[in-house]
């Protein structure tokens, strides 16, 4: 190592270090670059496709679109969905299989969206909720169809 490289080493090192310090110094003085979002006060808008949990929308007459066909139950890789069906007599007097309870295990769900894709009647969809923490994991087992709800007219 010659004396020249010794000193040029020192100077190039100091220069590179000062460049880095200039960058952090820039951010220290420019507060509008701050990207922190204050979560509970500011809730960022979630995109409509965000997968938070499975819900079953009901219309104003407390009707859903689920026929109890169990396509979602079969599509689910984790056994998250359990569908209990019942025999029901419809308007025409025919006996027909219908949904009794749609049990959804949120604690097992991986939000893979396969059940939504599999549903032939678009009866279930993904909601944009994500604050799922509870003290008792039993409260994560949900029944998606509302009590007293029934199948919408014209859905087979």
């Amino acid at each position: 190592m010659t004396l020249k490289t010794y000193f040029s080493n020192i100077f190039s090192t100091i220069r590179s270090l000062l460049k880095g310090m200039r960058r952090t110094g820039y951010y220290f003085t420019h507060h509008k670059e701050i990207i922190t979002q204050q979560y509970p006060e500011y809730k960022p808008p979630l995109p409509e496709r965000f997968r938070g949990e499975v819900v079953m929308p009901h219309n104003a007459d407390n009707e859903h679109k689920c026929t109890g066909c169990t396509a979602c139950e079969l599509a689910c890789p984790n056994g998250t969905i359990k569908i209990v069906t019942k025999q029901e007599i419809n308007a025409a007097g025919k006996k027909k299989k219908a949904l009794d309870t749609f049990v959804y295990h949120l604690e097992l769900c991986t939000m893979c969206n396969l059940c939504i894709v599999a549903c032939p009647t678009d009866a279930i969809e993904m909601a944009q909720s994500f604050e799922h923490s509870v003290f008792d994991r039993n409260s994560l087992i949900k029944t998606l169809n509302e009590p007293g709800s029934k199948l919408e007219e014209g859905i087979e």
Binding site: L46, P47, R49, F50, T110, M111, N113, M126
Partner: peptide, 10 residues
């Protein structure tokens, strides 16, 4: 990615 795929990581 979240906007198109619905998730951020998985």
């Amino acid at each position: 990615m979240e906007e198109t795929c619905g998730a951020r990581l998985t």
